[in-house]
Simulated assay, not measured.
Amino acid sequence: MKLAVVLVSPKTSGNVGAAARAMLNMGADDLRIVAPRCDYKDSASRAMAVHAALLLERAQVYTELKDAIQDCDLVVGTSARVRADLAPPQHPAQVRPLVRGADLTALVFGPEESGLNNADLELCRVIMQVPTAAYASLNLAQAVLLSCYEFLQSESGPPSPDHAPEAGHISSFPARKLALSSEMEGLYGHLRDVMMLTGYTDAVRARHTLRLWRVALDRGAFSSAEVRLVRGLLRQVQWKVGRVQQAAGQEPSGQPETLPIDE
């Protein structure tokens, strides 16, 4: 099991350094930073990192979250809020077996002042909430420490009855290799194109509609072969619509001339 910690647009360098130290405490060494708003290797960061300064030196920097997670087969976003059209947050005990069953998990944390936005959470297959008292706002390094502890150092075992998954949540992934984040994003982009092509949705409602489909399809824990299977069906729809358009004397909407069933 490998775990990558992804910090999205961190504002304060000291928080990045403290997060790196928390990672080292728990045995994580893959730090990825998306669009940092600070010099994450400055003296304040190094002072907070202490012996984890090497993690700062090795950190990979990305412009967008989708690039930082494309090689991961499980993406876990952290959030203390419930969004109406996204999957509800799960308790860490529910997420633990998913992480242990994945090859490479991205554990994603948002900006200090706002957390992950909806666009970032869309890219996460699972949303996790660290349980707290009524005041739910955690310091970035605290959130990293608790989350990494849960997956790397806590005792293994099934969730307790108090934290049993609710109906419809992902409770465990099958013992097989999951599709990469980049493959799932390719599927979702393809699905959006077909939705627009067939009039299933329009430009105004497309994002909300696709979020609902993301929740449903992420629950299926697709493998790479299953992604190819679904995309083969979507290509068939595009090809068929193109034929109908041609028969009606219309210009095809950029549909492929041939139809491979599998990639």
Rank of each mutant, 00 (worst) to 15 (best):
M1W: 08
L3W: 11
L3I: 14
L3F: 12
A4Y: 12
V8G: 08
S9Q: 14
P10Q: 06
K11T: 08
K11A: 11
T12S: 09
T12N: 14
G14P: 06
G14A: 13
N15S: 14
A18G: 13
A19I: 01
A19K: 01
L24F: 05
N25R: 10
M26V: 08
A28S: 12
D30T: 00
I33W: 11
V34S: 00
V34C: 00
A35W: 04
C38A: 08
Y40P: 00
K41I: 09
S43P: 01
S45P: 07
R46P: 09
A49H: 14
A53F: 03
L54E: 11
L56N: 14
L56H: 12
A59G: 01
Q60I: 05
V61D: 06
T63C: 06
E64G: 02
D67S: 05
A68I: 09
A68F: 04
D73W: 06
L74E: 04
T78L: 06
L86K: 00
Q90G: 05
H91S: 03
V95E: 08
V99S: 01
V99P: 00
R100G: 12
R100I: 05
G101A: 11
L104C: 03
T105A: 07
A106D: 00
V108K: 04
P111M: 01
P111V: 06
E112T: 04
L116M: 08
N118I: 00
N118Q: 10
A119H: 13
E122A: 14
E122P: 02
L123P: 02
M128I: 03
P131Y: 13
A134W: 11
A136W: 09
A136G: 14
S137A: 15
S137F: 03
N139Y: 02
L140R: 08
Q142F: 13
F151R: 07
E155A: 11
P158Y: 00
S160R: 06
S160F: 04
P161T: 09
D162H: 10
E166P: 03
A167R: 07
S171A: 15
F173D: 02
A175C: 09
S181F: 10
S182W: 01
E183R: 02
E185V: 05
H190I: 08
H190C: 12
R192H: 01
Y200F: 15
A203P: 02
A203K: 13
R205H: 15
R205P: 01
A206G: 05
R207K: 14
T209F: 14
R211E: 01
L212F: 09
L212W: 01
W213S: 12
D218I: 12
R219W: 06
G220N: 07
A221K: 02
F222D: 01
F222V: 06
F222P: 15
S223E: 10
R231E: 11
R231F: 00
R231T: 06
G232H: 11
R235C: 11
R235W: 12
Q236L: 14
Q236H: 07
Q236E: 10
Q238W: 02
V241T: 14
G242N: 08
Q246M: 15
A247K: 03
E251P: 02
P252E: 02
S253D: 12
G254A: 12
G254R: 06
Q255C: 12
T258Y: 12
L259E: 09
I261V: 15
